[in-house]
Design a protein around this nucleic acid. Structure first.
Lengths: 257, 257
DNA sequence: GATTCCCCGG
DNA sequence: CCGGGGAATC
């Protein structure tokens, strides 16, 4: 049976609620992975999503970070956080459905290369790489998705020369992402669009960044072999970024047969 | 020639802009006196009002207070502040039109009876009372309007027993307002509606205050004899308080022949 | 530029 | 409850 999954860094679920609900009604993904919900669990607007027929799973904290999974079908199992730990930050939420496990990540942004936050980012990516073989099997259906805060290649940034060696484009970050993929995950968007310069994030601070398409592709849907095979489409839905009061990110959607 | 004047404590011009523009289009007062604009002069959204055919006069400060006068006709003279002074707070703006002077006041709220801010409120009212005979003639057309933060009588509060002696209902505040009126000003709403319990302000903090009509009449239009005579209507326009994202106040409108 | 929280003031 | 402002983060 066909199904679809989306990832969307909403930059505040509460601030994004009207836009997000409209988008869910239209796009109707079976599973939606949200990042940067920026809300404590007791304040998560669960009923708004339940009204649209979604089960809601969320792992938040005050002010920052926060991840959620919305799903039309109920999860058989849910897991929060990373082993051995993710520094008390709400950045990882996984849920098991009939279609397999879905791991939703909000990878640290890292501030600047060399900054303490950047070392934490590399450590975080490394912990993801270590967690995968411990908990999963690359032969089984698995999605690892979210805001990776890494542009996998120079095709994935608007100005690779200017960004070379900078945060999100640094070789150490790319190597860390490649180690995650090397275990047995493929970047679905890139599988289906090997040449496309298509972004998922446009910085608010860059004037007219979206209009001028000065962006980054850092929101990824990675999948193990069975789901790579089953995936018949993976696209960036650029519309929500163009609406009023947008997130700085836009959703990525994958469809499976 | 017939004309109309309105007073409206907007509680933030910028936050109230859509509602305010809609209301101005509908009600189309020739003169609108705004209080609590809460904006510095360089950030006053003048063009939005100019697009509706208003001249704009404003006297603001950062964060608090702030008064403005919008007028379909140009002012011949404009004066800010009180003599000898109003403590550096932007609470007074006067403008002279062909129809006479209009003095727009945002009287201090006073926090609590006995509080330093309350003494400042009494002092402010006293300064208004002293300024009137110094600058104006009660035989000439003059409007003194705005948020007086005083309910003139027990008819002007939802629960006079509970409010007796409290801020906005204290005898000293009422006496100060009466001294202002005694010089030669009449409360136009009360002239036209001697018995009506009609409010202009409903506190956000009281649950359902507007729905349950738990309010105060503290926004007044006072006029000298020639304009009392010319006034054929004075009403509270209750509609804006019922809309989405309302101010805690609603406009009062007077019409003159 | 746009979140969030926390403070002040009504 | 809601406005504005300031700090921190991305």
């Amino acid at each position: 049976m066909a199904w679809s999954l989306a990832t969307f860094n909403v930059n505040g679920v509460r601030a994004r609620l009207p836009l997000l609900l409209d988008w869910l009604k239209k796009a109707a993904p079976d599973v939606a992975c949200l990042q940067e919900t920026k809300v404590m669990d007791e304040d998560f607007p669960a009923t708004a999503f339940e009204d649209l027929g979604y089960h809601t799973y969320f792992h938040g904290q005050k002010s920052f970070n926060g991840v959620a999974i919305l799903s039309k079908s109920e999860a058989a199992e849910v897991a929060q956080g990373l082993e051995p730990g993710d520094g008390g930050q709400a950045r990882v939420l996984a849920a098991r459905f009939k279609t397999g496990w879905v791991v939703n990540l909000y990878v640290p942004q890292g501030r600047e290369v060399g900054h303490e936050a950047w070392h934490y980012k590399l450590e975080f990516l490394d912990q993801v790489a270590q967690m995968l073989p411990r908990r999963f099997d690359p032969q089984e259906p698995l999605i690892v998705t979210g805001d990776m805060n890494v542009a996998p290649s120079d095709l994935d940034v608007y100005d690779p020369k200017r960004m070379a060696g900078k945060v999100s484009c640094h070789p150490d970050e790319r190597a860390a992402l490649e180690r995650i993929e090397a275990w047995g995950l493929a970047d679905l968007f890139r599988c289906h669009h090997p040449e496309d310069k298509q972004f998922t994030f446009w910085d608010y601070r860059l004037p007219q960044s979206f209009k001028r398409d000065l962006g980054w592709r850092i929101d990824l849907i990675l999948a193990t072999a069975p789901l790579v095979k089953a995936c018949n489409e993976c696209l960036v839905d650029t519309e929500p970024r163009g609406l009023a009061k947008p997130s700085d990110h836009t959703p990525v959607v994958a469809r499976f047969e």
